[in-house]
Design a protein around this nucleic acid. Structure first.
Lengths: 196, 196
DNA sequence: CCGACTTGTTGACTTCCGGTCAGCTAACGT
DNA sequence: ACGTTAGCTGACCGGAAGTCAACAAGTCGG
């Protein structure tokens, strides 16, 4: 006689909606600030359903991140036909574009990142992939020092981006050049010949 | 007739002991893994007493970190009489020494760091101080780009240290040289003349 | 040596959160 | 229509952060 007590959706559709909402919420609030009850309520759904789709809060968070990470991977894909320097510049432009467009999400990501085990390993995974993509453009079998330089440079990049978002006292091009120049400097310091 | 139910201490002494224990515990377990009840029990004291000395768990954590941060500040103090390069090298040696000696604490710090608001700002504070100390050795009124380079390099440093602890595939001297070389590279990329 | 006062200390309580489970019911096939 | 299935829920649990009124260890004046 009255409205149905709840609407029933296909698994895929429900999951998609929950992830979408999660990405939005986690971009605006820190991990600890959001309770599963609040998320469920925001989604117009019971807490138990959330747990039906995602085994834990950390898992849910990770799933939303994974989505974002995939978007970002596409944006920063390197063009294998371009010479290394230009390919790097283009990829960096894509990354900075994403950072600027998704400022909130990026900040929150870097903030909540490390305390959640699952998320920590996701970040590490992304960093590892990115490092590998960079190393692929260098002479094969790089010594540990060069690998370390590349991986640490990814930290430099995140630090520089956060700083940039905080202060906004540089042009995006300047930042990109700083990032590229520092990578070259780090590679030189590590004893690698530059990939020009 | 029997033993006293508890021992009464001076405020300063009790606080000191709690902080000492906290530093030890937080070096071995992540923030979320430790409950205030567990800490209190480990200290042979009631949970309420812990809250009497520290307004919240995050505050307690921050207090223990602040202690460690002060130790580290002393270790990495730069000698103003030395030429910039040597002063930096010496300071870096002090830092790497600390990292190597307090590996667990350093890792946990970098891990639990960002999710706790108070801790995040403490880290930021330390980074800011360190950046300022480095900038003081450069020509005055550096452009934003140079400041950004220095601050981002501090991220590079933390990333490189964590990586180094994970892999142990470099000598400490190599790491130090990589750090110094990258700083120089970053400064050059930012358009600053090297502080030689 | 004793009683009273100060204050360091506590046990019991509240609230909220992550997580679980048995059972209900909306949508779909026949 | 009506049974089936699987998407969905309310009620519940253990445990953690944080609070509070009251207790008692040490001290000090008499």
């Amino acid at each position: 006689m009255s409205e149905p007590a709840y609407t029933r959706l296909q698994v895929d559709e429900r999951r998609r909606r929950l992830l979408e909402l999660g990405a939005d919420l986690f971009a605006r609030h820190a991990f600890d600030e959001l309770s599963m009850a609040a998320i469920a309520s925001e989604a117009g759904v019971s807490k138990a359903l959330l747990y039906h789709y995602f085994p834990s809060k950390a898992d849910f968070f990770e799933a939303t991140l994974r989505q974002a990470a995939e978007d970002l991977a596409v944006l920063t894909e390197v063009d294998p036909d371009l010479p290394p320097i230009e390919a790097l510049a283009k990829s960096l432009d894509g990354f900075l574009e994403y950072v600027e467009q998704n400022e909130l999400a990026y900040r929150k990501l870097m903030q909540s990142a490390t305390s959640i085990g699952e998320v920590k390993s996701l970040i590490a995974e992304v960093r590892e992939n990115t490092a590998q993509r960079l190393l692929d453009r260098l002479p094969p079998d790089p010594p540990p020092k060069v690998q370390a330089a590349v991986r640490a440079w990814l930290w430099f990049m995140d630090g520089a981006c956060l700083d940039w978002l905080d202060r906004r006292d540089m042009q995006r091009d300047e930042l990109r050049d700083l990032l590229m120049g520092t990578l070259m400097g780090a590679l030189m310091a590590a004893g690698a010949e530059p990939p020009v």
